[in-house]
Every structure is written in structure tokens, then in C-alpha cells.
């Protein structure tokens, strides 16, 4: 018997649910209660358990699809002989003038919900549904920008030592972010107030020494947390970063989870952007924005020379630190980068 499996109502709000990966391939056997696929709601990653034992006949939604509760997600060829046709025992106390009401599959309200979600997308020409991740990112960053009084400090660093370290490591390639995460991790050891969280009328030290690195994956923003990079070599940090980014791109739900970090680094150096200001990722107190490394004319010993340089912009929460402290912190990061 074919069973149509509809998406259970697993989101805490009526938000869209994203398909992360299938755990069973069409044609494979499944058991009732076995995890069939993984989805991401506005709140968590969840496994969706099969409602029947049999064979997965068809997966009706693809990885990356945004779906709603009540939508068909799979067709299962059930092992069970067709359940007894509808000759259920008579209702114990039939109510007057009330027609038997078979609930629509997907629940009483699923139909309305599916319809309103559809209408939301279809009405008007230019509306685009946000993914659950984008909604969460948007909400958190709006909260940060509105609540945390940001101030910005900018300075440039000599990138030649990093270029030399990269050349020396060849053929291995050290990710640029490894140097920045390492420098931030080390500077945080001396300037630990930068890693505090603001809470009402006091500061709470971060419980982690991890440094976050912002990663773009198919247009979605994620932060990969690097385990305390202060005592590690750039090569080790680079390897950890590459491994974590690969797992994220492969759809590993563990890698996609939001991790708390002491501070985050965001890097647009692969583009033409020279410098930019970033929004602090709450509950952190600062974020470092990295522009591209480019040859720059500088004055050295009275003459003009060409040197590869990179511009760093620190966004800091003024409730946590004042300008002088943040300036000394940024100077320390630059000192670390230039003394490789």
C-alpha cells in the first residue's frame, strides 16, 4: 500500500522548513520511527521519522527546498497489508447534526497554513521567501545593530609577512583567515575585555576562546568557530578551518549549528572591497572586517615604496569597551600580523 508522507508540524512558528539531507535513498527499506530526512526549522536541526515500515518509493522534496508543514515529502510503499477499510466502530456518542469529520492529512490547520504560505509567495510580483537561516541572521543582526552602540576603528597592516609565510608553506596553502584568526586569538589574551558580553548592567566574560570566521555558503551566512587559535600555528588553524568549511558545505548538520565564539572575523578580501564595516554578531562585543590585500605606495625612510597591505576595520560595542581600549586592541592585532 502506498502511503503519502506529509511534512509534520515541527517548526515552532509557521515558518518555512528547509530540507538539509535525505538519510534514506529511494528504493531503500525503512522502518517506522527511523529517521528519514533532516530538516532545519527556525530553531533547530531535526530528524523527521518515518511513519511507516516499508520501502521509500519517492522522495518528493529536494535538498535545499523550503517546505511547509502538510506538504508531501515522501511516498512510502508500506509492508502492511492495507489497513482494514473504513468500517470503524461507531462513535461512542454521536453528536447531533455533526457530520463525521475526517481531518485533512497534515492536520486541521495545515491546509490553511500551506495556502497562506503559498499566497505569501504568489501575491505580488516581487516577493521572495526568506530561508529560515536568512530570517534568523536578519533578526539577530537587526537586534545587534539596534541595541549595541557600534563604533568603528580602521587601520592598515603590512601584509608582506603573511605573504612570506604563505610562500614558505607552499605547496600547502594557508588560508588568509588563519592569520587573522590567530592574531585576534592572541590579542584577545591581552585584551580580554573585548571578549566580554554585555548583560543589562554588567559584563560577563566569554566562556570560550574560540574565534569565529564568517563563511558564505550558497548565499547563506554561517560562522565557523575555530578552537582557541592563539597557541596554534597558522597551518594548523588553516587546516581546521578548511575541514569545518568542507563539512558545512557537505551539509553536515553539526557544522551548521550556531556556535558561540569570543569574537568573529569576516573577510571580503577575495573581492575588490578594500575596507568595510561589519555588524557585531551578538552576544559578542566586536567583529573584525578584513578587506583585500593590495600593493600600496607607502613612504618608507623618506622614499616611496610598494608594499602589500590590508585594511582592518574593527566594529566594537561601546557598552563593553571605550575607543582607546579598542584602538590598543586593533594595534595589537596589527603587531601580531606584522611580526609573523
Amino acid at each position: 500500500m502506498e502511503i503519502e508522507f506529509k511534512m509534520p508540524d515541527l517548526a515552532t512558528t509557521d515558518s518555512e522548513i528547509k530540507v538539509i539531507r535525505w538519510l534514506v535513498a529511494p528504493g531503500e527499506a525503512i522502518k517506522r520511527g527511523q529517521a528519514l530526512l533532516e530538516v532545519e526549522t527556525d530553531k533547530a536541526m531535526m530528524e523527521v521519522e518515518s511513519i511507516a515500515t516499508g520501502t521509500l518509493k519517492a522522495a518528493s522534496v529536494k535538498v535545499g527546498d523550503g517546505i511547509v508543514a502538510g506538504q508531501l515529502i515522501a511516498v512510502i510503499e508500506s509492508d502492511a497489508i492495507a489497513a482494514k477499510p473504513a468500517t470503524p466502530p461507531a462513535p461512542a456518542a454521536p453528536g447531533p447534526a455533526s457530520a463525521p469529520t475526517h481531518l485533512p492529512a497534515g492536520g486541521m490547520f495545515a491546509k490553511n497554513r500551506a495556502a497562506s504560505a503559498k499566497a505569501a509567495v504568489e501575491s505580488g510580483p516581487a516577493k521572495l521567501a526568506l530561508t529560515a537561516t536568512q530570517r534568523t541572521v536578519g533578526r539577530r543582526l537587526q537586534e545587534s545593530k539596534q541595541n549595541a552602540p557600534h563604533f568603528y576603528l580602521q587601520a592598515s597592516a603590512n601584509a608582506e609577512p603573511m605573504l612570506r609565510a604563505r610562500t614558505a608553506a607552499a605547496p600547502a596553502k594557508i588560508a588568509w583567515d588563519a592569520f587573522f584568526a590567530q592574531a585576534v586569538g592572541r590579542a584577545l589574551k591581552k585584551f580580554n575585555r573585548m571578549a566580554c558580553r554585555f548583560e543589562a548592567d554588567h559584563l560577563v566574560p566569554a566562556t570560550t576562546a574560540d574565534v569565529g570566521v564568517a563563511v558564505d555558503h550558497e548565499g547563506e551566512l554561517y560562522v565557523v568557530a575555530l578552537a582557541d587559535p592563539s597557541a596554534k600555528s597558522a597551518a594548523e588553524i588553516s587546516q581546521e578551518l578548511r575541514g569545518k568549511v568542507e563539512r558545512l558545505r557537505a551539509g553536515d548538520p553539526e557544522a551548521r549549528k550556531l556556535r558561540s565564539a569570543a569574537m568573529t572575523v569576516t573577510n571580503l578580501g577575495a573581492t575588490r572591497v578594500e575596507a568595510f564595516t561589519a555588524i557585531i554578531s551578538p552576544p559578542e562585543a566586536a567583529i573584525l572586517a578584513i578587506g583585500r590585500v593590495a600593493p600600496t605606495a607607502i613612504v618608507e625612510a623618506g622614499g616611496i615604496v610598494a608594499q602589500n597591505r590590508v585594511t582592518l576595520t574593527l566594529s566594537a560595542d561601546h557598552r563593553v569597551v571605550n575607543g582607546k581600549y579598542a584602538a590598543d586592541f586593533l594595534t595589537e592585532i596589527i603587531r601580531e600580523l606584522e611580526s609573523l
Binding site: 506529509k6 509534520p8 508540524d9 521519522e49 511513519i51 502538510g70 492529512a105 497534515g106 486541521m108 495545515a110
Partner: peptide, 12 residues
Amino acid sequence: KFLFLEGTMPGT
């Protein structure tokens, strides 16, 4: 639990 997953029963 399965009535919930099947969507035949409303509510969490």
C-alpha cells in the same frame, strides 16, 4: 507520536 507525525492530529 505517530498520529502527530502523520499530521492526523492537531497541535503539538
